[in-house]
Design a protein around this nucleic acid. Sequence first.
DNA 1: GACCAGGCACATC
DNA 2: GATGTGCATGGT
Length: 231
Amino acid sequence: MKGTRRKLMAMYRAMRKRFGHQHWWPTFADRPADAPLPPEAALEVCVGAILTQNTNWGNVQRAIANLIAGGCMSVGWLHAKPPAAIARLIRSAGYFNVKARRLKNFIAAVHKNHGNDIEGFLARGVAELRGGLLAVSGIGPETADSIILYAAGKATFVVDAYTRRILSRHGLIDGGWSYDEIKELFESSLPADVHLWNDYHAQLVAVGKNFCRPVARCKGCPLVRFRRGNQ
DNA sequence: GACCAGGCACATC
DNA sequence: GATGTGCATGGT
């Protein structure tokens, strides 16, 4: 386990050196780990996490801009409007009918016990918050963990397809590992640091985008020296 | 025109 | 439980 920690930290340093801090979403880098985001920023992160499912981030940003420009980025507005009204504003994010329903489901979960108070919804402990999010139809483990890490600012590790691919190529996991097993590998190996976990996931996505598609192009990848049998 | 993007739910076997 | 499919836009 100590070896895994060393390797994961060395990989982070290599990625960070190559790409710089990714500043994903309102980063917590400049604030204490326990300082919550302003509610409008927290909601924006939650909405972004749902809209970005299987979708290019640039398309999501247009949708978020539409919601903000229309004065629609609030729990109250999203709760009051039908899915079709939301779908019109988020067209650019793709799967707009599905995602409009998912946003409504999420907002309903917030509204049920917390009214328009997104901060209150996010202020619960990680286990309770995660359970509540996973109970929402349309929110799976990756979206739930993204909301917990980036909107609530609480330490939970986000695993995505790039994470799985990169770790598999580097011999840290094999193809059979579940989402939760991979998450546990990071969480038990790395220091429990929200800022580190925030940027670690973003760094893996940067590697994935630049070096893992459409087929592996490893030349210049900061992680190539960590490949299995190559260290 | 094909492929890809910061997934998820549901049906089927 | 594993695998396949629908959902949809916009960039490369």
